[in-house]
């Protein structure tokens, strides 16, 4: 297999030693079918054991290895060396998150926001297990399926100009997740979720730049989820004004 020498310029930050982040360069002999993560693993195994980053599945499904590659948020296990322009590859932690160390960012805010949108089945009427499954047609499934595909890699938060400006913004992945449950024919919790999703920190903070959908490695299209929620929340608001209730019953 042919090799290609690549220079990686990786952001380093070790809070116990470094006052501020800095870049360290590494020369890596890359195989032609390598992804960026393979090159970083090469650094870890052979050049510098102190480099820290998150990764696990190497198949773009665990969502651990999101990072900035040449300025764009991406999964390092799905970014191929062959697709990068020549010259040093700049690798940084996901933007808009505090750096914990090197390429590891603090995920607390993201995790808290996921939880806040109540991303679980809410039903006013329970169905006993003995009665078996809920029926759901393929068309009903299709209505929300796309929004179930989020791997929580947080690339969308790094790309989002609003999250950069307003840290309180619930943000693309969490809103798309709320929408996923709202659109599920088995769920009855939209009005409960609207307390968060239709608040100032919810969908109305979105400026519809669409950057989230551009960078999403799983094509979830959070921007479309947010737009659909804006419409739904407007309709609900008018319905409530007219005394007709609102939200899904």
């Amino acid at each position: 297999m042919t090799q290609r020498a690549m220079e990686l310029s990786i952001l380093r930050y070790r809070p116990e030693e470094d006052d501020k982040p800095w870049f360290q360069n590494y020369q890596v002999p890359c195989e032609e079918d390598w992804v960026v993560l393979d090159a970083i693993n090469y650094v870890k195994d052979h050049l510098d054991s102190s480099l820290s980053y998150r990764w696990s599945c190497h198949m773009a499904v665990c969502g651990s290895c999101g990072m900035m590659i040449n300025g764009d948020p991406a999964l390092s296990c799905k970014t191929f060396i062959r697709d990068l322009r020549s010259g040093p590859v700049r690798i940084e932690p996901l933007a808009n998150f505090p750096i914990e160390r090197d390429l590891v960012v603090v995920m607390d805010d993201f995790m808290e926001k996921l939880q806040r949108v109540k991303p679980y089945m809410i039903r006013k009427t329970g169905k006993p297990l003995e009665e078996g499954e809920h029926l759901q047609s393929p068309a009903q499934l299709k209505k929300f399926k796309q929004y179930t595909l989020c791997i929580n890699c947080a690339c969308c938060y790094s790309a989002c100009p609003q999250y950069a400006l307003i840290p309180e913004f619930i943000g693309p992945a969490a809103l798309a997740l709320a929408h996923r449950y709202n659109q599920d024919s088995r769920d009855q919790g939209r009005d409960e979720r609207e307390d968060v999703t239709a608040s100032n920190e919810g969908v109305w903070d979105c400026s519809f730049a669409g950057a989230c959908s551009d960078v999403c490695p799983k094509h979830v299209d959070p921007a479309s989820a947010v737009q659909q929620m804006k419409i739904a929340s407007t309709v609900d608001w008018f319905m409530r004004r007219l005394g007709l209730g609102g939200g899904k019953s």
Binding site: Y120, M121, K127, L129, G132, E133, H134, L135, Q136, S137, P138, Q140, L141, F144, K145, T148, Y181, D184, R186, D187
Partner: peptide, 18 residues
């Protein structure tokens, strides 16, 4: 079935059954 009740998006038959 419990997972279905918790929202797992199982693939479906035309009839709506899992």
């Amino acid at each position: 079935t419990q997972l279905e009740h918790w929202g797992c998006p199982w693939s479906r038959e035309k009839s709506g059954h899992v």
